[in-house]
């Protein structure tokens, strides 16, 4: 594991009286797989939204790959290499799987004020897209409308779109949400292939997935990160057990 890739300091966001993230500090190292866990309403999704640029923090800074990105918009962050998947599946339903990924490739292939040549016959977009689709196991489904893919396949497609932007950091907001056992296992396998070659920040409820994937875990409760460390340390941490795992440890 290498240098610090993402450095969050004092990130605070409140809605009315409710503090969703409260002076959050977080460091993600290059190449690590980092999971954020915590009970519902702990502020995990709000944190991801601020990291991705969909929400503006009230206070605090976000540094990414050595630059301050706190003021950047979501698209600008994406172009710097910060890619996200959504908690609720978010694909282009009326496009084919290949179109979906090709759009993600296109987003990072210079500006799109190109009005004349057909994008669907553009090998510089289609070939990388097909390769990524293949790599997530959707190669055979390239021509299917995204709306007609199974739920698990749509989530795989999301991962493919994220990968197609050639990100330096993947923000994955509950990638197993709403999946059956078998689908979850396939997703875990897919994410495991990314481990090491990609830096992952994962928000997840599925503890099997978290312990299978994460190098380090941060625990978020009431908008604060109360503990951070390797899985075994988190498992052993009394405060964490009480606050969160307690109900889960049985």
């Amino acid at each position: 594991m290498g240098d610090v890739l993402l450095e969050v300091r004092g990130l605070t966001k409140s809605f009315g009286g409710l503090i969703a993230t409260n002076r959050v500090d977080l460091q993600i190292l290059e190449g690590e797989s980092h999971a954020i866990i915590g009970p519902n309403g702990a502020g995990k999704t709000t944190l991801i939204a601020q990291l991705a640029g969909d929400l503006r923090p009230d206070a605090g800074t976000i540094a990414f790959a050595g630059g301050d990105i706190t003021a950047l918009t979501a698209p600008a962050r994406s172009r710097r290499g910060l890619a996200r998947s959504f908690q609720i599946t978010s694909v282009f339903r009326d496009f084919t799987a290949l179109d979906n990924v090709a759009l993600a490739v296109q987003a990072h292939a210079g500006h799109s004020f190109r009005f004349w040549r057909p994008a669907r016959r553009d090998g510089t977009l289609r070939q990388p897209a097909a390769a990524v689709l293949e790599s997530v196991g959707l190669g055979a489904r390239a021509g299917v409308l995204a709306a007609n893919l199974a739920h698990g396949e749509q989530r795989q497609l999301e991962i493919a779109m994220v990968l197609a932007t050639r990100p330096r950091l993947l923000l994955l907001d509950e990638p197993m949400a709403g999946m059956g056992l078998e689908e979850s296992q396939r997703m875990i396998d897919l994410l495991r292939t990314l481990k090491g070659s990609h830096t992952l920040l994962l928000v997840e409820h599925d503890m099997d997935a978290v312990f299978a994937l994460a190098d380090r875990i941060s625990v978020m409760v009431y908008g604060r990160i109360i503990a951070s460390g390797p899985p075994e340390e988190i498992r052993a941490n009394a405060e964490v057990r009480e606050a969160y795992l307690g109900e889960d440890a049985r």
Partner: peptide, 16 residues
Amino acid sequence: RGVRSNEPRMRAIGFS
């Protein structure tokens, strides 16, 4: 057309 289909997604993959 992507904007029509899903604008938040377009922004997330890097389109202003």
